[in-house]
Design a protein around this nucleic acid. Structure first.
Length: 625
DNA sequence: GCCGTTTTCGGCCCGACTGTTTTCAGTCG
């Protein structure tokens, strides 16, 4: 039997829910107990390694090393892993025989409210509750009313539809639109999109907007009349919460100028990062909220307009938004060590990539020719090199290339490189005509804030001949090494047999990494965010082999992959394994995705030195196998 | 139930919004 971290986490949430139902405000212990279960659940959800693996390798001791997991919870996890059940939970279920999962995440009705309903009725699940409301019986319970019935019914219905998180890349254009719309409002003196968007998390739950204005209620009036708005969920004097027609929620906070820093800190999150900061404040007899940092004794406001000032008063260095996850950054920032200050200064920067090492052409499943991909890489995105890495023959669905076709492509690439060197390639007459704004992505998002770091000398641009070679079931490749060795750069990737065990899957990747022709493992875990988990890989073992064989791991920047994910990037930087950030472009517009890969690298604390394609092409090639 | 730069007991983040509460609890972010 195999039990995932998600399942364990959910089980702990069920227990927390029932414990909170069971609590009353006089019993402090039970009140904090449920929070402890929730903390543990959060922690487990963010863990890069499976608890099952930790338990198999190190037993209870291993579990106890995880923050927020102590004696009681670790032994319950042990019981769950061994028996598939937790007796403690079963007992709570006897007391409260309800389908807890039905109510987890149901907005507007928490454990306390549910308890009140259960005191006078015998509902078990969401259907029962819905019937109760439809029969107008809920309003008979003290504290409930017709108004509450109406609200609850709506919430039950939207809960049924389910709300999954949106992909960062999907929301980018919409968020830019809203940003532009409100920036045009003369009463808005500052506007910033905060929340998980500012942290560049791979998925976004809702859009958080922070506005500085002297007229908060006017701004809120303007916001709620936006035509994109489907429903106003709540509205106060400084905050508004609305649902947009595309299904995403938007949360807006309006503050005065001197609260901009504290509000952006509070609103950028993460929640756990914020909690840690407020605890630090508490330790100094300060109070930190969205309005500022205050001295408890004097009531005086100590800081508020800048994030840096607040961090400093709490004894910390400023922390970049992408790192604010309470994954150890606060402890590090506390120490003021040279190492940490260097880490922050050397974090890989946006616009710092000189090349893109996974690019597809219309020789396989790409949409544009090699010439077009090169032309736009240079002229629109100011890259100095790209690698054409088309699929290989066993990936029939993408018209993968065979040995001869790869060699033919090599000749063609050499010809284009010769034209580039002679200076007649990047000229306006050569501008490909097929690319006329096929979609708005580039216009709205892709080129925004692009720094012009154009190398005046266009003749230096280089196309590397490469391939995205298919890793077969046994870890061998579908193209012979003597052909691969004639190309400049080789990425290997898994595109089939996803359901093998972790051991076999890891062995496949290790064999590929040990192949002397393979420079990079492309999208190492194969996940598609919100669609497919990715095959199971023992990342530690893969990293060890990568280190031994000088194999590079890719951060695939396509926003539906972002593979490696942030925790794995962190592990790679700790191991000293080098990475590259590639767009996996199938169209020139896709080069815009590189920024998502950089964001992911920053979330994984990667420095410039960890990322090889910040280097000029000659240095890059020297660093490969 | 967890945890430790006031540590092995005694704490545990903070404020806005909603509803019908006439002073606050529940829920959320």
């Amino acid at each position: 039997m195999t039990i995932t971290n998600a399942e364990i986490s959910k089980m702990l949430r069920r227990i927390a829910f029932l414990l909170e139902m069971d609590s009353n405000k006089d019993d402090k212990n039970i009140n904090f107990k449920n929070k402890a279960y929730l903390r543990a659940a959060d922690q487990i959800e963010n863990l890069p390694v499976r608890l099952e693996t930790i338990y198999k390798e190190n037993g209870l001791i291993g579990l106890l090393q995880i923050p927020s997991i102590g004696k009681a919870i670790s032994s319950k996890i042990e019981e769950y892993l061994n028996t598939g059940k937790i007796e403690y939970y079963e007992k709570l279920q006897i007391k409260y025989p309800i389908d807890v999962d039905d109510f987890l995440g149901l907005e507007g009705i928490g454990p306390k409210t549910l308890k009140e309903i259960l005191d006078t009725t015998t509902i078990r699940n969401l259907n029962d509750l819905e019937s109760l409301i439809k029969e107008k019986k809920l309003r008979r319970i003290p504290g409930f009313s017709e108004k509450k019935e109406v609200n609850l019914l709506k919430k039950i219905q939207s809960h049924r539809i389910g709300k999954s998180r949106f992909l960062l890349g999907d929301l980018f254009p919409i968020i830019n639109q809203i940003e532009n719309y409100l920036t045009g409002n003369e009463k808005v003196s500052k506007l910033i999109v905060v929340g998980s968007f500012r942290r560049m998390k791979e998925t976004i739950g809702d859009i958080d907007l922070l506005v500085v204005s002297k007229h908060p209620s006017d701004i809120i009036d303007d916001l709620i009349t936006l035509p994109e708005i489907e429903e106003i969920l709540s509205r106060g004097t400084s905050k508004a919460f609305v649902r947009l027609k595309n299904g995403i929620d938007l949360d807006m906070l309006v503050v005065p100028e001197d609260s901009f820093g504290s509000a952006s800190l509070y609103f950028t999150g993460s929640k756990e990062h914020g909690i840690q900061l407020r605890k630090l404040a508490q330790g100094r007899d300060y109070r930190l909220n969205e309005w500022g940092l205050f001295d408890n004794k004097t009531g005086q406001k100590l800081a508020g307009d800048s994030e840096t000032e607040i961090y400093n008063l709490l004894g910390l260095e400023w922390i970049p938004p992408e790192m604010r996850e309470n994954h150890g950054e606060i402890e590090m920032a506390k120490r003021h060590s040279r190492q940490w200050i260097n880490k922050i200064q050397n974090l890989v920067e946006y616009e710092s990539l000189k090349g893109d090492l996974q690019v597809h052409s219309n020789n396989t499943d790409g949409q544009l020719s090699i010439e077009e991909m090169a032309y736009f890489a240079k002229t629109k995105f100011h890259l100095d090199y790209i690698a054409i890495t088309d699929h290989t023959k066993s990936l029939a669905i993408a018209k993968g290339l065979d040995e001869q076709q790869l060699l033919d492509q090599l000749i063609k690439i050499n010809e284009i490189n010769d034209r580039i060197k002679s200076g007649d390639f990047f000229v306006e007459e050569n501008r490909p005509k097929s690319n006329r704004d096929r979609n708005n992505y580039l216009k709205e998002a892709g080129t925004k804030n692009l720094k012009d770091n154009r190398n005046k000398d266009d003749k230096k641009f280089r196309i590397l001949a490469g391939a995205e070679v298919n890793i077969l079931k046994d870890g061998s490749l579908d193209i012979s090494n003597n052909v691969l060795d004639r190309l400049d750069i080789i990425g290997a990737a898994i595109h089939s047999n996803f359901s093998l065990t972790e051991e076999i899957q890891t062995e496949r990747l290790i064999r590929a990494a040990q192949n002397p022709s393979v420079d990079i493992i492309f999208h190492p875990t194969g996940r598609i965010i919100n669609k497919r988990e990715g095959y199971p890989v023992n990342i530690s073992k893969l990293l060890f082999t990568a280190m031994e064989t000088n194999t590079v791991l890719e951060i695939d920047a396509h926003y539906n992959r972002l593979d490696l994910k942030d925790e794995f990037i962190r592990m790679a930087t700790d191991t000293g394994v080098k990475m590259v950030i590639d767009s996996d472009a199938h169209h020139s517009l896709h080069y815009a995705f590189l920024k998502f890969g950089i964001a992911q690298a920053r979330r994984g604390w990667a420095e410039r030195d960890d990322i090889l394609n910040v280097l000029p092409v000659s240095d890059l090639l020297k660093n490969l196998k």
